[in-house]
């Protein structure tokens, strides 16, 4: 924000709100990083530690709700300030969801570490890095009040969808090849789905930030890849047909 309020304590309260959002976002970002690391290194200890970290994010969400209600009631914010506070409320609930998904990824990392490794697990860190980068950029866009940066994150979500869709097909193939893969592959499928959902929430945050900065909603339609929801895999043929 360019200039300061005449009442300095108002600025202090808004800054505190924004700092809490950044702290919460940074925490969610590192929760996701740890959860993915736990999958890549098959480390149940790290995974459990990550699961135990989630309540800290929930506590920050409650803190942000409290700050926002207080600001709305006592400062009667207008224009950009009003949009800032609404954005903080919506972003904090998006980050809270991201934290939940990261914790779920960590839980599955515990189970995955107990079953034999399957190859598609190698794609998960790549997908995770992409989403982490998006979270980082969206938080930067929030701090800097940069609508174009937010829009760039928003336009990148289809890369996540693309990885998810190809991973979906790959996992199905592995499951069809050998029923013993079904357990770990199903967990990986949920992991991939969770990361894909984190990407969606990050995209929503980007939309909220765009509105916060410009006062306008992003109306154009987002670039989208193909949708795995419509995928229809054929089982392999027993007689050595072409289904492999």
């Amino acid at each position: 924000m360019t200039s300061e309020h005449i009442v300095k304590s108002y600025d202090a309260e808004l800054n505190h709100l924004n700092e809490t959002i950044l702290k919460m976002g940074g925490l969610a970002e590192s929760q996701l990083a740890e959860a993915i690391k736990a999958i890549a290194t098959r480390d149940p200890e790290l995974a459990m530690e990550t699961v135990r970290g989630d309540p800290r994010i929930d506590a920050l969400e409650a803190d942000i709700d409290h700050q926002a209600v207080r600001l709305l009631a006592l400062r009667q914010p207008m224009a950009r300030d009003l949009r800032n506070i609404l954005a903080a409320l919506k972003i904090s609930s998006a980050i809270e969801r991201i934290g939940d998904y990261a914790a779920n990824v960590a839980k599955r990392a515990v189970t995955l570490s107990e079953s034999p490794p399957v190859r598609p697990a190698g794609t998960i860190p790549r997908m995770g890095r992409l989403v982490q980068r998006m979270i980082k950029d969206v938080l930067d866009a929030y701090t800097e009040g940069d609508a174009e940066k937010a829009k760039a994150v928003w336009a990148r979500d289809h890369e996540v969808d693309d990885i998810y869709n190809s991973l979906f097909r790959e996992l199905l193939t592995y499951m069809m090849e050998d029923p013993r893969n079904i357990g770990p592959c199903t967990h990986l499928l949920f992991v991939a789905k969770n990361i894909e959902r984190i990407g969606d929430h990050t995209t929503n945050m980007a939309e909220i930030i765009y509105f916060m900065v410009t006062g306008n909603t992003l109306l154009e339609s987002r670039p989208k890849g193909e949708d795995a929801s419509f995928a229809h895999p054929e089982p392999p043929q027993k007689d050595g047909g072409d289904g492999r």
Partner: peptide
């Protein structure tokens, strides 16, 4: 306008 924004949000 920035001036409107400044006035209604309590900034100079």
């Amino acid at each position: 306008d920035e001036r409107t924004q400044g006035y209604i949000t309590g900034r100079y």
